[in-house]
Nucleic acid binder design. Structure first.
Lengths: 153, 153
DNA sequence: CCGAAGTGCATGCCACGGCATACAGTCTAG
DNA sequence: CTAGACTGTATGCCGTGGCATGCACTTCGG
C-alpha cells in the first residue's frame, strides 16, 4: 500500500516541475516588469488572441470567470488592456491590449524567453525536450477536449 | 517575433496540464474528503515522511515557510496532525499524523489513485507515460538540485 | 411579439499563499 | 562564558483565486 503507482509518480513530477518553473518565471517577471506570472499569461494571450472575451481567457487558463474578470480589472487599471463593447453580444466585452500593453508584453516575453532558457538549458537536453513535447501536447489536448479541471466560477 | 519557441511551448503545455490535473484532483478530494489538494499533499507526505519539520515540507512542495506553517495549523486544528517537540532543536517541531490523519490519508489516497486513473487512462497511453516519466524525473531533479523556484518566506 | 430560460460577466465574501517581521533557540569567535 | 550572528518557525498584512450571487442581455417557445 505504500507503493507509488506510475500515475502517482507522473503526477508528482509534473506538479513539482510546474510549480518550480512557474515560481521561477514569475519571480523574474515581477522583478523586471512588476507583473505576476498570471498577468503575464493573460497579456501574452491577448497579444496572440486580440479581441478575446473574459470567458475565452478563463477556459484557456482553467481559472474561474470571476477571477479572470478581476484579473482583467487589474490589467485595465494599469492601462495595459481595454474593454471594448462587443458588437455581437452586448453582455460581454472584447479585451484588447493598449499600446503600452503591447510594449510591456514584448519586453516581458523577452525576459520570459531568457529566463526559460536559463532554467531549462542546464536541466533538460534538447532530445529530452523533443521527447516531452508531443506527449505533453497530447495530454493537454485530451484534458482540454474533455473540459477537465475547469473551476466553477 | 510572434513565433513560439520550443521552450515556450513546453512551458505552456506543462503548465496547462498541471493546472487542469491539479484542479480535477482537488475537486474530487474536496468533494469526497473535505480537503483541498495542497492539504492532501501535505498529509500524504507526512504519511511517507514521519517526523518532518515545517521547512522540509516547504522545500518539498516549493511553498513558503509561512504558508506551510499555516497549512499545518489548519491540519492540526482538524486533528489530523500533531506537532511534537523536536528533541534535537527546540526551535522546531516534528509533525506527525494522528490516527485519524492516517485513516484520512489512506482513504484519500484511494480516491486520488482512482481519480488519476480516470483522468489519465483516456488521455495518455502507457507508452507515452513511460516516455514521460524519466524526462520529468530528470527535470524535477535538476530543478530541485539548483533550488529553483523556492518562494522567499 | 412576450415571458421564461439561458448566458456572460461583475462583485462580495472567504480561504490560501507570499512576503516582511518578530522571536526563541542555536552556534561561533574570542 | 557571552555577545553577536544565524536559523527555524509563527504571525500579520496584503494580493489573488474560488464560489455564490446578481444583473444585463440574449434566445427560444408559443
Amino acid at each position: 500500500m505504500a507503493c507509488t503507482s506510475a500515475n502517482e509518480q507522473l503526477f508528482d513530477h509534473l506538479v513539482r516541475c510546474e510549480t518550480r518553473l512557474y515560481n521561477a518565471v514569475g519571480e523574474r517577471l515581477k522583478a523586471d516588469h512588476g507583473i505576476v506570472a498570471s498577468q503575464f499569461e493573460f497579456l501574452r494571450y491577448l497579444g496572440r488572441h486580440p479581441r478575446s472575451r473574459v470567458a475565452d481567457i478563463a477556459t484557456t487558463f482553467a481559472v474561474g470567470i470571476g477571477a479572470t474578470s478581476k484579473g482583467i480589472d487589474r490589467l485595465e487599471a494599469r492601462r495595459w488592456v481595454r474593454r471594448v463593447p462587443n458588437p455581437e453580444d452586448r453582455r460581454s466585452s472584447l479585451i484588447e491590449l493598449t499600446p503600452a500593453g503591447r510594449d510591456l508584453v514584448a519586453a516581458a516575453e523577452q525576459t520570459f524567453r531568457e529566463q526559460l532558457e536559463t532554467l531549462l538549458a542546464p536541466a533538460i537536453t534538447d532530445d529530452q525536450a523533443r521527447t516531452l513535447m508531443p506527449v505533453l501536447a497530447a495530454l493537454r489536448h485530451a484534458l482540454e477536449q474533455r473540459n477537465i479541471g475547469l473551476p466553477t466560477g
